[in-house]
């Protein structure tokens, strides 16, 4: 695969890939040229719909996807200013994710593939997150540790120079983003929890309130955030004063700092152990400003090159799906039209 990821000197024509992503609660479609140039990247967020439940409700997400999927795809094609005939392939996330949500995107992608007589490329959503960085740094190459951290996933991957991807760790319970959402809900701060806690934590002192750093010294690269959440809840039960307005910022700052520290300690440890000098972070939680700062600082001190895509590309989006689709397309790794959707999947 490495030869493909390097610049292809024999490239005859530009590839135009339409990407579709509906694995969770965002309905996304994008058009990407040559796996790099984003011609359009449309994201219809459902945050407001799920806000009152404090988390993504699968049936509601499925209902929303099916209402707007055709409109979002049409919008992506219009914004890209391309004709239907110029699309070379349609790429779609078919795993892992919420089955009802995935079906909306995969059904639409199959219809497009069949209607336009172009290849269908079903991709792994998590692998697409790893590829989101290629939209910004197409020459990054392999040989790095990748951390994907979002509301649904927290996993570490070792990616060798030939782009063989191996999962080396994952969360044993809640994903980091899920922990943010649950704590935000517990504290009545709103949804999604990540951005709310991120901005509130800026006014707090992360050292004032002591919280554990779960599994930080474990000998593997797995994570666990459920216990941290419980620790915070017990702490506030013992000391109800922590829930007072003047203490909330300190509380969430500590909570966030604990998650961020565990994430970067494990990621850099994995990087050192593998002998790599590159780290990639993606996923919705990679939008967290404290995480970005901490990773940047640590990368500088350890002389590791850090790649974190811009916030819009860290979150769920279809540009990353189209980007990964591009690399599969030029290798002719097409999917059967009978491809299914899967709630769980290895990368």
């Amino acid at each position: 695969m490495s030869s493909i990821l390097n610049k292809d000197k024999d490239k005859k024509k530009n590839t135009i890939i339409l990407g579709i992503e509906t694995s969770c609660d965002d309905t996304c479609a994008a058009v990407v040229e040559n796996g790099q140039k984003i011609l359009s990247n449309v994201i219809a967020s459902q945050h407001e719909i799920h806000e009152k439940y404090g988390g993504v409700v699968p049936e509601i997400a499925s209902r929303r996807h099916i209402e707007i999927i055709d409109i979002i795809i049409s919008e992506a094609i219009i914004q890209a200013k391309i004709s239907l005939e110029s699309i070379d392939a349609v790429s779609v996330s078919n795993r892992p994710g919420l089955v009802g949500s995935l079906l909306a995107g995969v059904g639409a992608a199959k219809a497009i593939s069949y209607a336009l007589k172009i290849p269908l490329i079903a991709v792994n959503h998590l692998k697409a997150h790893l590829f989101s960085n290629f939209l910004i740094n197409p020459d990054m190459g392999g040989g790095f540790i990748g951390l994907i951290v979002s509301g649904g996933h927290t996993s570490l991957y070792s990616v060798d120079s030939k782009w063989n991807i191996r999962e080396i760790g994952h969360t044993l319970d809640d994903a980091a983003g899920e922990a943010f959402d649950k704590i935000a809900r517990f504290l009545g701060l709103g949804y999604p929890g990540g951005p709310v806690i991120d901005s509130l934590a800026k006014t707090g002192d992360s050292k004032k309130i002591e919280l554990p750093f779960p599994m930080i010294d474990s000998n593997d690269f797995n994570f666990s955030f459920s216990g941290l959440k419980t620790a915070l809840i017990y702490k506030t039960k013992k000391e109800p004063g922590l829930l007072d307005r003047e203490n909330i910022a300190d509380l969430v700052a500590s909570f966030q700092a604990s998650i961020v520290k565990v994430l970067f300690e494990k990621t850099f440890k994995a990087c050192a152990q593998a002998g790599y000098k590159k780290i990639l972070v993606s996923g919705g939680v990679a939008a967290n400003s404290s995480l970005r700062e901490a990773f940047t600082a640590k990368a500088e001190s350890e002389d590791v090159k850090l790649f974190i895509p811009p916030v819009k590309l860290c979150m769920d989006n279809a540009a990353m799906v189209a980007c990964l689709g591009h690399y599969d397309y030029i290798q002719k790794r097409y999917s059967e039209i009978s491809v299914d959707v899967y709630s769980r999947s290895d990368i």
Binding site: A104, G107, A115
Partner: peptide
């Protein structure tokens, strides 16, 4: 059936949109 109905809808809506 909600899920089954949505499968037909996603395909039909997209075909109609394309053509």
């Amino acid at each position: 059936d909600f899920t089954a109905t949505r499968i037909g809808l996603s395909v039909i809506k997209t075909l109609a949109m394309i053509f």
